[in-house]
Amino acid sequence: MSVGFALLGLLENGPRHGYDLKRSYDEAFGRDRALHYGQVYSTMARLLKNGLVEVESEPGDGPERKKYAITHAGMTDVAEWISRPEKPEPYLQSTLYTKVVLALMTGRDATEVLDAQRAEHLRLMRVLTRRKTDGDLADELICDHALFHLEADLRWLELTAARLDRLAARVRP
């Protein structure tokens, strides 16, 4: 899912070819796993179908010569996605990272992304904390497990926030 939003976000700065998209994505997010071209193709196809992007044709047809542009609906979708906190769950990093980088690349306030996410995490953590304080040992152990994971996420978020400036310098086009 987040790949789609990421590609959409990349288009916010202007129309690109599929190949461009793959390169930009790999540079910004593809640390662990580069995107296959086929993946770009299929994702763009779905976005096209949903009306979030449109294709600008260029002379010398061929699949790799297609230029994609984001539609108005696409822009709204990206904005909504970036600012919506993720439901706290373990191993969110890649999504959160994508959001933060996209926010930076598109000139949004990345700290807001972080703050919103922190609020969301804390909300869940409070629930867990309360359950654990009121419950028995089993509850406590289970809640603690979740709490430690959530904490790790949040700490990572804080860390990211502290390094936003350096990150911004790297990802801004």
Partner: peptide, 14 residues
Amino acid sequence: HEPRVAAYSDREAV
């Protein structure tokens, strides 16, 4: 600084 400690709060301010 610790989210787990902050989780004892009712709300947070950043």
